[in-house]
Simulated assay, not measured.
Amino acid sequence: MIPRVTATVDLSAVQHNLQVVRTLAPRSRVMAAVKAAAYGHGAVPVARALEAAGVDALAVACLEEAMELRQAHVQAPIALLEGVISSEEAALAVYERLQVVVHDHWQLALLDELPESSRLSLWFKLDSGMHRLGFPLSDVPQLQRVLRERPNWKLCGWLTHLACADEPGSDFTAQQIGAFDAALQGVPGARSIGNSAGLIAWPQARADWVRPGLALYGCSPLPDRSAQSLGLRPAMKLESRLIAVRWFEAGESIGYGRRYRCPARMPIGVVAVGYADGIHRAFADGTPVLVQGQRVPFAGRVSMDMITLDLRAVPQAQVGDTVQLWGPGLPAEEVAAHADTIAYELFCGLTQRVHFRHLHAAGED
């Protein structure tokens, strides 16, 4: 059976991108974000590839994501970025040797329900201005007391998250980093600030730990820097195929709502992919794809199972030709802009209908 839509994930590209991160932040340890199924790339194969490449730790959003990795025998340290939400989760986190990110006092109360002998590894998350999760910076002395009173709790470090790291020169980012550093002046424990954008654009965010996400998957987190210019390689290639090629006269309309009108007699291609596969209905006419290595644009509204293309640039295109939605030669971040979104959402939005292939350096997994 031939898959309609295939996402091919090059795990050697993920490993290459990890080395790019290490080059950018040579004095930092790397906690790789593999939450949300490794940004839609496949949590277990990506985590195994990163572990094989010597990553220092992995980061997931929640306990369910961590358990998927542990059940697949991934042994690297794993941090729960949102922490735990019940005493049962706290006990399981200890049993599975997970690092718990603690961001609020109610979580401290949950952890206090653990037996006194429990050996807990934790990070304290501080709110330096993102105003999403984290203790106020003024709580640092209180959190130090908490640790002194609980000798079996091991502090992995202190972390914060930047709100505008993808805006080089942002005064607010400089304020966040400065406030975080000031609050921890003289306080023991490792620091972690930079996500992908932070570690690339803000040298002062390359603290003891960096937490890359998007960069590991070969996308640039910065609007004015391409992935290629940063030395990153796209890890995912999303492909479908042409299932029809038909010619229409000038003025004829294509697809739902008749949004697209043919400006001349022209070939229209139909591709077996749509919003049920994760291709946003919001994609505008003109969104590029690759056919026979040439860029051709969307022509008409995305439907559940199909998109339509203006094939004037490749009039020789035939049924069965491969159509690349994003990947090498067509960056996902560029494609995402045509739906007024970001590459993260494209990757995470792929559905169960998409067939995944994971490639190692020596071939298919």
Rank of each mutant, 00 (worst) to 15 (best):
Met1Gly: 12
Ile2Glu: 12
Val5Gln: 01
Thr8Arg: 12
Leu11Gln: 00
Ala32Trp: 10
Ala32Gln: 09
Ala33Cys: 01
Gly40Asn: 12
Val44Ile: 15
Ala47Leu: 11
Leu63Asn: 10
Ala66Ile: 05
His73Ala: 15
Glu82Ala: 10
Glu82Gln: 12
Glu88Leu: 15
Glu96Val: 02
Arg97Thr: 11
Val101Gln: 14
Trp106Cys: 04
Asp112His: 09
Leu114Ser: 10
Pro115Gly: 13
Leu120Pro: 06
Leu122Thr: 06
Lys125Glu: 14
Gly129Ile: 14
Leu133Ala: 07
Pro136Met: 00
Leu137Lys: 03
Pro141Trp: 01
Val146Trp: 14
Arg148Phe: 01
Glu149Gly: 00
Cys156Glu: 13
Trp158Phe: 08
Ala163Lys: 15
Ala182Arg: 13
Arg191Ala: 08
Gly194Trp: 08
Leu199Tyr: 15
Trp202His: 11
Trp202Gln: 12
Ala205Lys: 07
Ala205Pro: 06
Arg206Ala: 10
Trp209Asn: 05
Leu230Pro: 12
Ala235Met: 04
Lys237Asn: 04
Leu242Arg: 08
Leu242Gly: 10
Ala244Phe: 03
Ala250Lys: 14
Val270Asp: 07
Ala276Asn: 14
Gly278Trp: 04
Gly293Asp: 11
Gln294Asp: 03
Gln294Ser: 13
Ala299Ser: 07
Ala299Trp: 03
Arg312Gln: 11
Gln316Trp: 06
Ala317Met: 08
Gln318Gly: 08
Val323Cys: 05
Gly329Pro: 09
Leu346Lys: 10
Gln352Phe: 02
Ala361Thr: 10
